[in-house]
Design a protein around this nucleic acid. Structure first.
Lengths: 184, 184
DNA sequence: ATCAGGTTGCGACAATATGCCGCAGGCTGC
DNA sequence: GCAGCCTGCGGCATATTGTCGCAACCTGAT
C-alpha cells in the first residue's frame, strides 16, 4: 500500500495553518515537513521524496497550481492533495488535470484530509460523490465566484485583464477576490 | 486537428435546454444528436462514435457521472464536457478523474462550451494566453441574470421559492428582476 | 540606466445596492 | 372566513460599488 515511511510534505504560506496542520499530522504518526514557498517545496520534494503532499493554492500571490506539474514530476507516486481556502471549480478541474489526486476546500477536517491523502490512487469501487447529484443550485454569489475564477484562469491570473474581460472595475474585482467564497 | 465529421452528442434530460443547445450547435455546422437518457446516450455513442460529448449531470435523478467511464470506454478519443446546473467541486473533481475533459456550470455561453469542446486535449505546458478566443466572456451581471432566469424557470416563476433556492432575499430578487438585463 | 507602459495593492469618499423590517392585497384549499 | 402562501412596495441602516489617485513593481526598448 505504501512505503515504510510515509513522509508528508505540507506546502502553505499561512504560517499558522501550516504549523497546526503539521502538528496534527505528526500527532498521528506521520513524519512531516512544512514549507512556505514553491521553491522550498520543490527542493524538499526532490530531497525527501514524500509520499503525500498537501498543497495550498495561494502561495504569497503565486498560484500553487503551477507547482502541481513539477511536484508530480519529482514524485510520480506521491498523493497530491490541493487544499485551498479560495476553492473554485475552475481551479479544481485544472488541478486534477495537472495531476493532483484530490482537491479540498478549507476548512477541512483532519480526517477528511487524511482520507484523501491515503486512499488508494484509483478505486472505482467507491461510489462517493457519484451519487450526490441533487443538491441546491448555486447561489448567485457562488455563481459569480465560479465565473470570476474561470475567467481569471483563462487570463493567467491577470487581475487587470480579467476585470476588463468581465467588464467590471479592477478595484471591485480585487475586493471580491479578497473575500473568501461562501459555501454552497 | 479533428476528423472530417465532428459529430456532437448532447446528453441532457431537460428537453428545452437540450433542444436549444442542439440547435445552436447545428447552426454552427456540427452534426448533432440529442438524447435524454443514459441508455440512449450509450447506444448512440457506440453507434455514431461522436468526437464531442456534452453531458448533463442530472439525468432524471440518476447522476450523469456514472456515464463518464462507459462513454470514455466507447469513445476513447472524444472530448467529454460535463455541463451541469448543479455544479459542485466534488462532482467536478470526480468527473475529471473519471475521464471528462472539462466541467462547466450552467449557464454557459455557447462559445465557452464550443471552446471547451474543441480545444486541444489537455496540455498543461501550453501558455495559451496568446490565442485567447476573440469572444468576450459574459459580464458578471449578465451571468447573474442568466442564472437567476434559469432558476426562476425551474421554480415556475415563483419569486419567493427562487429567492430561497438562490439563498438571497426576496426583496433583493424583486429589485434585480425589476431591472432589465444589461447587454454584454 | 532610464523610460514608457503594463500590473498590483490599497486608501478615501460619494453614489448605489442590499438586508431586513413591515404592511396590504391576492390567491389557494379547507 | 381563515390559514398559509405569494406579490409589490416603502423605508432605512448598513454594505458594496464606482471612481480617483498614488506608490511600487516588472519588463522590454532605448
Amino acid at each position: 500500500m505504501s512505503s515504510i515511511v510515509d513522509h508528508v510534505l505540507v506546502i502553505d504560506d499561512d504560517a499558522v495553518f501550516n504549523r497546526v496542520l503539521c502538528r496534527a499530522l505528526k500527532r498521528r504518526g506521520y513524519p512531516v515537513s512544512g514549507v512556505h514557498s514553491g521553491e522550498e517545496a520543490l527542493a524538499l520534494a526532490a530531497q525527501e521524496q514524500p509520499t503525500m503532499i498537501v498543497l495550498d493554492l495561494n502561495l504569497a500571490g503565486k498560484s500553487g497550481l503551477a507547482l502541481v506539474t513539477p511536484l508530480r514530476g519529482l514524485c510520480p507516486d506521491a498523493r497530491i492533495v490541493v487544499l485551498t481556502g479560495y476553492a473554485s471549480i475552475a481551479t479544481a478541474v485544472e488541478a486534477i488535470k495537472l495531476g493532483a489526486n484530490q482537491y479540498l476546500a478549507k476548512p477541512v477536517e483532519i480526517d477528511t484530509l487524511l482520507h484523501a491523502l491515503s486512499s488508494a490512487p484509483v478505486d472505482p469501487g467507491a461510489k462517493t460523490a457519484i451519487d450526490t447529484p441533487p443538491s441546491m443550485p448555486l447561489s448567485v454569489e457562488r455563481m459569480e465566484w465560479e465565473h470570476i475564477q474561470r475567467i481569471l484562469l483563462e487570463n493567467n491570473c491577470n487581475v487587470s485583464a480579467t476585470a476588463r474581460a468581465l467588464n467590471m472595475h479592477r478595484r471591485t474585482l480585487q475586493r471580491k477576490l479578497g473575500k473568501r467564497p461562501k459555501q454552497l
